[in-house]
Write a protein that binds this DNA or RNA. Structure first.
Lengths: 204, 204
DNA sequence: CATTTTAAATTGACAGTGTCAACTTTACAG
DNA sequence: CTGTAAAGTTGACACTGTCAATTTAAAATG
């Protein structure tokens, strides 16, 4: 094949990465219920027990795929924010749009990522990536609304709760479908307008 | 038909109800991943294939247990609201507390109930019980904040998104644990304070 | 009351699934 | 060149959902 470009360091080359990639594809094509160790193995062209040498059971595989999902998720928010103006409220709504776009584009990946229980405490260690890669984007974008010497977690948790609740309720079909006019669903602007009340306390 | 409620009308009596009850117990004791047709059957003392005559596969069993969960869920909100004053904001925060109490007391049941995709549209048919038993409680409690001849769905979706997002993020361990001082988690009051901005537009 | 009919439940089978132990292959260190 | 340990395979086991065939028992019918 193209082994001339990169040599194969092991038997397969890099099976761990290949299994994660297979898992993401299965997630997109067949949904969360079809994401199994054996299917990932078959798709990657290895035996059914090969993944055991790279992940700690099916939970480990799901966690690894979830991490990959969070990275994609973070890019969605960054892209949306980059396409917004410099206004603090516009930037905040932009990452919310990115949040919903990711959930709608990758529902199974979103469901997987947020179905995994977190061990640590986010308020204690907000910088921990295992909790949620992409939290830094939320923190940055919420900063203009945090009082001087105030606790940033207050605004962050308000925004996160609102947008995450909308995303999950939208994804489970409780807020109506999406249309070209309303790619985030018909209720998105109305729900997100609750954040208009947040006062800008720190200059751009 | 109803000639003998207490007598056993069929072989088992009322296997369907017994299976649902078994399922709720399994959910509470062992978690969502252990909720299987065969376990419910074994717990109810019947053969592994008996549930097939009462539910449409495992999805049917989960849907039936979910319905039961929504009824309990609704009672949580009603109880909380009954223990609140007549102030519109107090009543709104009360059902939010009931929402979180249910999620924390019955995490697996909460997860199951909101993991099921809804077919219909809630905005089109808000009165449909299959979408969410208990939506009537939300509608009633949000009514004071809805403008005359306004769309009630706006405020309802704002409140629902905020509280549901907080519930799921709390349940997945992203907002820290609960303490006797903060039975809904340390961030609950802060998040819910976002609803203080809602103006009361219709008298009690 | 006896017989037929039909719903309820059982049994057995099959294809998947996760997980473990034992085995084979192969890359790399010495 | 050889030994070793990692990487991957094979086979097995206990689960799972689902289906077909069967038995059981309640209800309907004559």
């Amino acid at each position: 094949m193209t082994d001339a470009i990169e040599k194969t360091p092991h038997h397969h080359g890099n099976l761990r990465a290949a299994l994660i990639e297979s898992g993401v594809s299965i997630l997109i094509e067949d949904g969360l219920s079809k994401l199994t160790l054996r299917r990932c193995a078959a798709r990657a062209g290895v035996s059914h027990a090969a993944p055991a040498h790279h992940f700690n059971g099916v939970a480990g595989l799901r966690a690894a795929i979830s991490e990959e999902g969070f990275r994609i998720f973070r890019n969605y928010m960054l892209d949306a924010r980059n396409n917004a103006g410099s206004n603090a409220h516009e930037r905040l709504k932009a990452i919310c749009r990115g949040y919903i776009y990711f959930a709608i584009d990758n529902p199974a990946l979103f469901e997987l990522a947020f179905s995994i229980k977190v061990i640590g405490d986010l308020q204690t260690k907000p910088e921990t990536d295992t909790v949620a890669v992409g939290y830094d984007v939320l923190r940055e974008t919420c900063a203009p609304f945090v009082p001087e010497n105030g606790d940033p977690f207050i605004v962050e948790s308000q925004v996160w709760s609102l947008i995450h609740g909308y995303a999950t309720l939208q994804l489970t079909g409780r807020f109506g479908g999406t249309t070209p006019e309303h790619p985030c669903g018909p209720g998105f602007d109305q729900v997100i307008s609750l954040l208009d009340h947040l006062p800008v306390l720190r200059g751009t």
